[in-house]
Amino acid sequence: MAQQTERIFVLPGDQINPSVIPSHPKRPLKLGPGLRHIPPSELLPTVAGQLVTDYKKNSIWVEYNGGRYIPAVGDLVIGTVARSVVDYYYVTLSDYTSNAALPQLAFEMATKKTRPQLNPGALVYARVTLANRHMDPELECVSATSGKAEGLGPLNGGMLYDISLGMARRLLMRKSVEEGKVVVLEELGSAGLAFETAVGRNGKMWVNSESTKTVLLVGRAVQETDEKNLDAEQQKKLVRKLVKEMS
């Protein structure tokens, strides 16, 4: 069984070799971003990037870096509240795109009387619940099944950094160190810095800490890793350099 994900470079409209597409006996095939299903059984890439398959989960997607964020259901995103209307907040996910709608009751323990008051410009960490073409996406800050926030909700203080979409995805991987090859946050943590982060799939990273210096350092480390495409060894070096500079 091929555990290792295979990587093939594809261009939009390329034919995908059917042997690459995972076929699990029971589970349905899951399509990730960058692929389009043309019934009955044709798959077409819509972006240029690496075709990645996961046989275990029976899923296939195209991995690419850059471009504008296109919301997909289940994505964790960081948005800025643009304005509030009756029952809804309108949230900006990326600049110059139409806003996403966040129901004011979609927060933990929110009722008509106890819903959180967010001013325009406030940051929220949310999950995309509805994403269709040509429609404004919808968000939630509470798990529909458990009714718990699960880490979602308004983000107070801290600083927001722009990162590339690929970097955001790498940071959000369950095993970001092994698969995503990002060790920078772990390194910073082991260097004795205390901070918290939230990563949005829409290319945003929020960093908070007691000390302003730490926030700046974490932000710069991640942005530099992203921009210069550093590998694990270089990331470690960068962290050592930055920590040394700070102290």
């Binding site: 600049d95 110059y96 001013n119 410009g121 406030a122 940051l123 600083m159 929020w206 210096k213």
Partner: peptide, 17 residues
């Protein structure tokens, strides 16, 4: 595109430091 409240507060705070 305008920066969020968090960014505003943080940048000013950092500059003051």
């Amino acid at each position: 595109a305008e920066p969020s409240l968090n960014e505003r507060a943080f940048v000013v705070q950092a500059l003051q430091e």
